[in-house]
Amino acid sequence: MAAGSKKVIIAALAGNGLIAITKFIAASITGSSAMLSEGIHSLVDTGNQGLLLYGLKRSSKPADETHPFGYGSELYFWAFVVAILIFAVGSGVSIYEGVQKVLHPHPISDPTIAYGVLALAIVFESVAWWIAYKEFNRRRGDLTIMQAVRRSKDPAVFTVLFEDTAAMLGLIVAGLGIAGAQFFALPWLDGAASILIGLILAATAALLAYETKGLLIGESADPEVISDIRKLVDDVPHVEQVNEMRSMHLGANEVLLALSLDFQDDLTPGTVEQTITALELSIKKQHPHVSRIFIEAQSKEQHEQVITHDAERLEAPQ
């Protein structure tokens, strides 16, 4: 999964870097606010892909004394930073530039150059978008796009996909704004296009921030994984019932699982230990990404007593 994510990010990084250079050159020649906004957009995207690569590298660090559960959440943090940068820099600057152009309109000097750059940018963006979409589509299976995004625990791929989608929309809007300014002799349309590009980026940033926030504060494993683990536990002959099962993604490919199990009362300590070991190995064999498993032997009554104690402690005045 990490290899696929890295390929998607590198493809987007290379494409956006080349596009940003051509857009800034075109903006300096034509004086188009929409083109300048697009240049800023591509520059922000390039930096964002660099941050995602950094997040991938950091998330692969092994666990140590200060981070006993590893660094998997680093990717979630940097993906959230990316969302903030898209909103603060990409959207903010684009809207500001657009407002300035609407208030102080001036004609575009050579729109032909702008059209050529936009066409070239669409080619680059299409390639990067297609690579991201293929990887995303491979993972989502029968789910809809939004269902796959909500269930995904790897923000790298859907972040790049959303960025590239916003970039494609931005290119179309920039082209329409420049064409409108040229053919209708209304220079302020170029500024209006820049504002619309900023709004597209703001919407993209809000969606990314919402999705990565959930990962950052901790999301459970996929419901299908939880259901499968419950079946494995139910098949263990010495377990009376599952008192509680909790899971949390520590990273894209790392899940923490905590189980409270009610074992038969007549078992010896050695049998309980063997059962726990066998169950843990069985879970890890079927779900290798469940890397941390903690199993607690506790009767149903004892578990309910602890739950009641915790609830009373939370309700007590601080």
Rank of each mutant, 00 (worst) to 15 (best):
L196F: 15
I122R: 04
S260Y: 07
E65H: 09
S73W: 02
D235Q: 14
R246G: 08
T46W: 08
P68R: 06
V82D: 06
S220R: 09
A79I: 09
S32V: 06
A121C: 09
P317M: 10
I307C: 02
G251D: 10
P68T: 07
S42A: 11
I113F: 00
D265I: 15
S73Y: 01
G191S: 00
D266G: 11
H41G: 08
A3Q: 13
R230C: 08
V127P: 09
G72Q: 08
D262E: 05
V173T: 13
A221Y: 03
L186K: 08
L256M: 13
N243A: 00
F124L: 15
T212A: 07
A311R: 14
V225E: 14
L257R: 03
V82T: 11
H309R: 13
G191P: 00
L216C: 06
I122H: 11
L36A: 10
L256E: 14
S37A: 14
W188N: 02
D266C: 11
N243E: 04
S33P: 01
L281G: 01
E125L: 12
L75E: 15
A12K: 01
A11D: 14
L36E: 07
I283D: 00
G55N: 13
V99M: 10
D222L: 00
R151K: 01
I229W: 02
V173G: 09
V149N: 02
S109N: 14
I131E: 08
H309P: 00
T204V: 15
V272Y: 02
D266A: 15
T46S: 00
L176M: 15
V149K: 01
S220Q: 10
Q264V: 11
K134P: 03
A192G: 12
E301N: 06
A316P: 05
L161W: 05
A83K: 11
I108T: 03
L259F: 10
L75P: 06
F87R: 00
H106T: 14
Q264P: 12
P237E: 07
S109D: 12
I229Q: 00
V160C: 07
K134H: 03
L36F: 07
W78D: 09
S37N: 07
P288A: 05
I293T: 06
A12V: 04
E219C: 13
W188I: 00
K285S: 13
L52G: 02
I172K: 04
F184W: 10
Y71P: 10
T66I: 09
T159K: 05
A2L: 12
L56W: 09
D222F: 01
P155C: 11
E280C: 05
Q274L: 14
N137L: 02
A114V: 09
I295M: 01
G50T: 03
G90P: 10
F263H: 07
Q241F: 01
L216A: 11
F69W: 05
Y115L: 04
E304I: 15
R58E: 15
G39S: 03
Q302N: 15
A63M: 05
A193P: 05
S194E: 12
A179E: 10
D142N: 14
G98V: 00
I84H: 12
G214R: 00
L314H: 11
A20K: 07
K153D: 04
K284I: 07
